[in-house]
């Protein structure tokens, strides 16, 4: 009970305020969801209705031709597979490396802890920037390989510090009793600390995975063969660049509609994985943000 805010129903003003507030929130929810809903509805409607601008809330002439086209398109499949590989490999590297960085820094008896914390935290304020980073990747001969996508961002210092804070809150008596059992620090990290840190591991996994799935810029500058493009880069070519060209090129009206249908189906395919993990995401991310905010 103590957590509940006091309720005052006194006064008509308060009621009007509450009513307007609820209306405003409903409007907000509509604005947040409608663009995605519209994409979905258009992607399963037939061309003639879309062209007449009649498809706004309810799909008309329902058909899945656009999805058929998407599934038959080989380059989309290749990109989808690439995105999955980059996300899985990249996230695995992210989580393992972040934990390996965070654990020593969380130990008060780690010799040189102050220096290494500074060494790591400094990179949050100073960075080489776009061109020097590109040149390093180039010099390491990683251009046009998966490693150019997954290695340069292997550790997000911000996320790593959230993890370190979490590790710090694990009672040190656990570590000490593991020492008594003859375990070394590597065993302690993987057998004691990580199993106890599942909430933060889940949060980090989701953060990193969504980041990989959604990123396009790195792939765009580091990859040059089309067979290696992730979905986002292909999507950029199809929906953003494609549409710009469309403004000038005079395609027949029908062609254009198929294009819109097709584009929207690709967008849906791209956001479905995010929507699938979103329920898990929203369960964890607020927690992650809080931990970060408390001792950032």
């Amino acid at each position: 009970m103590s957590k509940k805010k006091p309720v005052d129903n006194a006064g008509i003003g308060a009621r009007i305020f509450d009513g307007c507030n609820i209306l405003f929130m409903l409007l907000l929810a509509f604005i947040m969801l409608y663009p995605m809903y519209n994409i979905l509805v258009v992607s399963i409607s037939s061309a003639e209705y879309i062209y007449r601008g009649e498809v706004n809330f309810i799909p008309k002439g329902i058909n899945f031709d656009a999805y058929k086209m998407v599934f038959e398109n080989e380059s989309i499949w290749v990109s989808f597979k690439n995105s999955v590989v980059y996300t899985v490999v990249g996230t695995a590297i992210n989580v393992v490396c972040s934990a390996m960085c965070a654990y020593p820094l969380s130990r008060k008896d780690f010799y040189g802890r102050g220096f290494f914390t500074f060494f790591v935290a400094l990179t949050m304020f100073i960075s080489g920037g776009m061109i020097p980073s590109y040149l390093v990747v180039n010099q390491l001969r990683l251009i046009n390989t998966i490693w150019a996508i997954v290695l340069p961002g292997a550790i997000s210092t911000y996320n790593m510090i959230i993890m370190r804070t979490f590790f710090q809150n694990i009672p040190s008596s656990l570590t000490e009793s593991a020492y008594l059992d003859g375990a070394n620090d590597i065993q302690i990290l993987f057998k004691v600390i990580l199993p106890l840190s599942m909430p933060i591991i889940a949060t980090m996994t989701l953060f990193y995975a969504v980041g990989h799935w959604n990123s396009y810029f790195q792939a765009m500058i580091y990859l040059n063969s089309k067979s290696k493009f992730p979905l986002q880069v292909l999507l950029r070519e199809i929906i953003v660049a494609g549409n710009m060209a469309e403004e000038s090129a005079d395609l027949s009206a029908n062609m254009q509609i198929i294009a819109i249908n097709f584009k929207y189906a690709v967008i849906i395919i791209t956001i479905v994985p995010i929507l699938v993990v979103y329920p898990f995401l929203q369960k964890y991310f607020t927690k992650g943000v809080m931990i970060g905010a408390i001792k950032g």
Binding site: C97, V120, I126, G128, P132, S133, L135, P152, I155
Partner: peptide
């Protein structure tokens, strides 16, 4: 344990700074 993260920071954070 810290070796791999250390190498990461040197390669992908400090080397680009030198590149400035």
């Amino acid at each position: 344990i810290f070796l791999i993260p250390f190498v990461y920071y040197i390669l992908f954070q400090y080397w680009p700074m030198y590149g400035i």
